[in-house]
Each structure stands twice: as structure tokens, then as C-alpha cells.
Simulated assay, not measured.
Amino acid sequence: MKILLTGGYGLVGRNIRSHSKASKYEWLSPRSSEVNLLEYHSVLGYLHEYQPDVIIHAAGRVGGIQANMREPVRFLIENLDMGRNLLLAAAESGVTRVINFGSTCMYPKNRQEPLAEKDILTGELEPTNEGYALAKITVARLADYLCRENPSLQYKTLIPCNLYGPYDKFDPQWSHMIPAVIYKLHQAKQQGASSVEIWGAGEARREFLYAGDLADAVIYALENFESMPSLLNIGLGYDYTVNQYYEIAAKVIGYKGDFHHDLSKPEGMQRKLSNTRLAQEWGWEASHSLEQGLEKTYEYYLKNI
């Protein structure tokens, strides 16, 4: 099976290609110099030339709260253009199987109950990453519409919760919460700092999946494509407070100091927990605990960053 993996050099892509079963497949992981996902004819030409059997669309403009608030236009337009160019070109060139990646940012804000796939477009989005969310919703809907018009197509969307792991971005200007926490706590440990700042009160709850577990889900999807639902949450099904993430990461890293809260800073959604019932019924669930995932991620950070 020949698979085109967009974003093959990002967090998701590198973890997929590093999976123990990845060698079973032939991978195409082009750089942007080989195919420009922001240009439709570049994508179409690449698909006609290489004719992949499956496309996994893991490329995207990603970042944490700071980056999303700073550049909402870029997060909306680039993610929308990449997704629609890839799906439309896939349909035109005859690629019948696509795994598209969504995000739990697609769900309405401030829902206390776990977010099920049917909840998309049932409420207001979180303002701090609205542009990114709108792009992801539109591309997922486009995948569904293309399949409605042409039943031979199987374009499916996986919706992972927040991710962390090897190959992540650890620069706080661009990173998501866990790599930023690892960076901050490591620096504080090295410098002997007595206290580390946490944005907000730290009571917002977050669900973070180890990226190696998402890679497991992707390989499982390739092996069980027919039975995979068209829209599917991939997550833990349970969450922790921001304060708990700091406390568990401090234990892994060996930071012995205290924490203080800057209540003037935004926290984002108060809770964003995915309902993983469909994934469990399909036959998949995550295997890493938070502490296990943090230990592997910190080991990568020490060796590579």
C-alpha cells in the first residue's frame, strides 16, 4: 500500500513513520518544496504523478493559545486551503481513501460533558482558536459532502485531542501546553528557580494524548479502514487540570519549586474532554498513562533539544 502522508516531518507525521508497523507500507512524505499544499494544481500534479492508494492528511498550521490569538487569519486560511486542496485533488485524481485530521477545537466551548462526534456545530466555538476550528470543521464537512456525492469515496476524519510527545515544538511561543510546561520546568530546574508561573487559576481541564498512541490509532485505521466511522474521536476519555499537569510533569522532571498563578492571562476553554465510546466500540484505546508519556517526551527533550 502506497500512502501519501502530508506533514510527515511534524509531530504527528514523525510519530506515524516511527511506528513499529510503519515498515509494512510504502510512504510518500514530501516536503513543501516538492508539493505546495496551498496551491491546488501543485497538489493535483503530485497525486497524478505518484498515485497513492491512501492519503493521510496530517499537515497543518498548528500552535498554542498565544500563536492562535496572534495570527488568526493565518490559522484559518492556511488550514482551510491545505485541506480543501488535498480533498478536491484526491477526488479528481481518483484516490478513494483519505484519513483527514480534525481537532477537538471543532467542538463547542465550555461543555462539561464529554464531547461526542454529533456535537460538532451545536454551539459557539472557543474564541482563542476560532479560526483554526472553523478551518477544521469546514474540511471535515467537505470530506463528508464529497462522499455523499460519490459513494465510492471513503474520506474519514479522525479527531484527536491535544497531543504531545517526541518531535514536538518546545518553544513556548509556538508550543502547546505540555511541551511548554516541560520547557519551563526544565529551565526552572536548571536555573534553581523557586517558582514557575501558570496562566490563569490552573483549574481548566485538559485531555492530552501521547502522540505514539495516535500513531497506533492511525495504523489500526489502515488495518481496519472499512469499519472505521467517518468521524471519530481519538483520545483518552479522561482529563486532568492544568495544575495537575504541572505537578505530574514536575515529578517527572525533578523540579522541586513552587507555582504561582497569573490570573490576568487567558486559560481557553474550561473543559474539552472527548467522548471515546465510538473508538472503543471500533476496537481502539490509548495505552500510555500521562506519567509514561511525559517520561518518554522528557527523554526525547533531553537528548534532542
Rank of each mutant, 00 (worst) to 15 (best):
F101D: 02
S152G: 09
E203N: 13
A133D: 12
T6N: 13
S33I: 10
H260T: 08
T241D: 05
I305N: 13
A204V: 09
H288P: 08
A67M: 06
Y164S: 04
S32A: 14
V35H: 03
I248N: 05
D262Q: 12
G83Q: 01
K189N: 10
E207N: 04
N68W: 06
E226V: 08
L125C: 07
Y300E: 05
E197R: 14
G200T: 10
S264W: 03
A22M: 10
F75W: 10
E124L: 09
K136V: 05
E124G: 01
K109L: 02
N100I: 02
T138W: 06
L263S: 08
Y145R: 15
I77W: 09
E291G: 11
I65T: 11
I3N: 11
R14E: 04
R148K: 12
A221C: 14
S20D: 13
M228W: 08
V62R: 03
E223Q: 15
A59F: 02
S20V: 14
Q187E: 14
I120Q: 01
N243D: 11
M269C: 07
Y220W: 03
N85G: 01
H19N: 10
Y40V: 02
K256Q: 15
Y298W: 11
N162E: 06
D144K: 14
K296V: 09
A286V: 06
L86C: 03
V181F: 08
G123F: 04
T104Y: 02
V95Q: 01
Y50A: 12
L80Y: 00
P172Q: 12
A89L: 01
G131H: 02
N243E: 13
E117K: 00
K303S: 15
T128K: 11
Q187F: 07
P179L: 13
E49V: 08
A188Y: 12
P172V: 09
V73D: 12
E295I: 06
G212E: 08
I159N: 00
G83E: 01
Q280H: 12
K21L: 14
H57G: 06
I65R: 07
E126N: 04
Y50P: 05
S274Y: 00
Y132W: 07
L294T: 10
D81V: 02
G13K: 14
S289G: 01
G283I: 10
N15Y: 00
R111L: 10
C105L: 04
V54Y: 04
D213C: 03
A67H: 02
A133P: 05
E26I: 05
D262G: 13
V12A: 10
V62S: 12
C147N: 09
L209A: 05
N129Y: 08
L76A: 13
G7T: 12
E285D: 12
W199G: 12
